[in-house]
Design a protein around this nucleic acid. Structure first.
Lengths: 255, 255
DNA sequence: GTATGCTATTTCTAAATAAGAAACGAACGG
DNA sequence: CCGTTCGTTTCTTATTTAGAAATAGCATAC
């Protein structure tokens, strides 16, 4: 088997198969049986079974009851807890982000940069806010998200050029910025303002205001307030901005 | 390689090695390098490297910067999010548990039963509470934890006997109940009261009051309030009980 | 009670993969 | 410029895996 990106032989074929199986389990509507897994991934049933046995032994999956359905194991909660803790910004910023959620009554997000993508570390939903589709651990493009743009705006010229060389500006919505020139211009404004407004560039009908968490050139991440754009008027947007800036200052003081 | 419990051949040797490596990364004080991993797990360096490459390709680990340190990947956040969602009780109970944390000013826990163990799904810490050592995803014995005992107390006679046949009542603290007879007697009281008081039976100096979340014979899990016992007097304990019962009723109504 | 159909599990052997010693390379420091 | 320290690659043997086919387990129907 080959690694598609390096085209070198890739060791650990069983690992790749195990991941395929776990991914299937994780995105299945209902906990699948061996038969169902076998019907959807192109690996033979005996092999799947043997891998599942080992995964169960490791705690990565569990099988429930007489129907032999497979679930992802709670060991992932442990690992995730550890991962979260490697991003100290999460714990530190949490009370302030909760404050921001309460004052705006909208969803507040915290993200970190990983492999040129914004990864959602935490999402604080306001009780009365419509649920957004974003998921913890989910990834967003830097160029299309408010959080990402605040980071890009603070990149050095060289780093930004590097980023742009390795990404293609795909349109996710009609509003996505897809030209480098437009993006450059937008980022300049973001840098000047200190925050980024993203008007349904990443997800239809969702407006988002992002603030960078950067101090002494160290990039800790970014946070944002997001809401369905039909209920965000100019006054509300201004409220997001000023509330966000206040919170940003408080967090930066602690870094 | 053999499965120690069934003594049958175990397929997926690479998986086991991968887990060993990830476990090492997850519990290391600082993100380890290849050399450090190699020094602590008994697998040769080239093999570890090859497994790490594949793990990185899968997103299970990431390597940072020039120092080539390994971290667990954010993919675990995604998996954990999925795992959490399979336990609908978490989302549903959350606001009430937060209320309980705020009214008691102590740590509130939510657990589910998995493989005859209580698994900690969520922990809501009060700002001023001493940090307890429990971790999300961590497992506790049913017989020694307040949450576990509320579940056991509601098991059928046969199911309880089954459980007791497969567990050995190891002492975790001087207070752990280690005799079946004492446990039976204690569970009877728990059943009568509707809640379980656990006085440092699971962890030294920590007192805990647990409440079952069971409706129409379906076991959803349990929650508890826990605190260092030096600051829990009779009045405070009574407060835990009455506050907990109120919250329990509210949650049960929604199930 | 026993056929019937379905799914999980075991067996078995050619074919693919993994393991680790050794060699190599890159980065650093004196 | 040499020595040291890691990370990486190479290479060959020994081990592991894949999946077809057989089997077992377990319902439900006849």
């Amino acid at each position: 088997m080959k690694n598609p990106s390096t085209n070198q032989p890739l060791y650990g074929v069983v690992l790749l198969k195990a991941k395929t199986i776990m991914d299937f389990i994780s995105q299945a509507q209902f906990p699948p049986t061996l038969r169902e897994i076998s019907a959807h991934v192109s690996i033979s049933k005996p092999t799947i079974l043997k891998i599942l046995n080992t995964l169960e032994f490791c705690g990565f999956v569990r099988r429930e009851g007489t129907e032999k359905q497979y679930y992802l194991g709670t060991i992932f909660l442990e690992y995730a807890d550890k991962v979260s803790k490697t991003f100290s910004i999460k714990k530190l910023a949490h009370p302030y982000l909760a404050e921001l959620r309460d004052s705006t009554h909208e969803t507040v997000n915290l993200g970190v940069v990983e492999q040129n993508a914004m990864t959602l570390l935490e999402k604080l939903e306001s009780p009365n806010s419509v649920k957004l589709v974003s998921r913890i651990g989910g990834k967003m493009h830097m160029y299309s998200s408010a959080m990402g743009k605040t980071i890009l705006a603070n990149y050095s010229e060289k780093k930004l050029a590097d980023y742009l060389d390795n990404v293609s500006l795909q349109a996710l919505t009609p509003n996505t910025i897809t030209s480098k020139q437009d993006l450059y211009r937008n980022l300049e404004q973001v840098k000047k303002q200190g925050y980024a407004v993203e008007n349904a560039e990443n997800q239809l009908d969702i407006i988002c205001v992002g603030f960078p968490l950067i101090k002494s050139d160290r990039v800790y991440g970014a946070f944002s307030v997001s809401a369905p754009n039909y209920r965000v008027d100019q006054a509300k947007l201004q409220n997001f901005i000023t509330s966000g800036q206040t919170i940003q200052e408080k967090i930066l003081q602690l870094l």
